[in-house]
Amino acid sequence: MSGDSLEEALTRRTQNAPPELLSRSFFFVCAALSIATTIGLIVLLTTEAAKFFTFSAPLVGVTGETASVVEFLTGTNWAPTEGSFGVLSLVSATLMIMIGSSLIALPLGVGTAIYLSEYASPRLRGVLKPGLEILAGIPTVVYGFFAIIYITPALQPFVPGLGTFNILSACIVVGIMIIPMVASISEDAMSAVPEALRQAGYGMGATKFEVSTGIVVPASLSGIFSSFILALSRAIGETMAVTIAAGSTAQFLNVINPAAYTERALPMTAAMVKLVGGDVTGGGIAFQSVFAIGITLFVITLVMNVISDVVAQRYREEY
């Protein structure tokens, strides 16, 4: 953004010449396209979801079969072909993926960030950071395949009752997948902590361990927190790995019961893939439900992104 008055004074006279006008309009249209994408997403999701829900359907002039929004949000049975749309069974599976993967990714990600920002030599960082980037660059469908063909069989001797499709191995791969996200955002926050604070710590006789845990981590807490929220939102939106690894049978599970993680389940994203990818064909209310899940997912991830933004902006320590 250029608020430079000198620059403006120098270019004001020419700013309406045809080539300037043409190029500026082109750049503006490009930037405005992102707004158009968002508007398109919101309009599409709301109108299509409204076709699915009873209460707002008459408002947008939709007639025919519809489902109740209350039943959708509070029901626990998901069987679209039988006309039963309880999204809670999908939400429970998504929550389990989120909890399980965060148990892996959050501690490992923060540990990675501390190591990279405080301990690693520049040379080692030069090797480790591209390594982490590659971790994030492997397609999610490959992670899903890893989960089902290597991780689940490897876990089966140790975990009783672990089926071919289970939430546990999906959690492991999603957790691995989001480590780089937690690590890179947290590390940025830690690198932004001024060197003077560390020096003050050392001057007081603190060890490196005490400086890292007592000064650097608290000072960058808002950045770490926002990285957590972004990573969780990524875990919720993760599609292919959970579709392949967690299975395709919807059931309402107890989120805090560890034994439930050995079960198969259908997270929200997997349900969308299953609906479009062949479960129901040729429109109808079952097909329309994919937009209802879509808007639920969109709203959840949007809210989490906004929270992460607010945390990063508002609670940042200014030095």
């Binding site: 992102s34 968002t38 972004l230 994203t269 997912l297 969109f298």
Partner: peptide
Amino acid sequence: VYLEEYAPDNRFTRAIDVNISNLAGVPSVV
């Protein structure tokens, strides 16, 4: 280029700014 070189510092620019970072977080399936 628009956002870095041309955009005036007004509400619309900030809206685009916030919007882009939010779009980056929307799940691919959506």
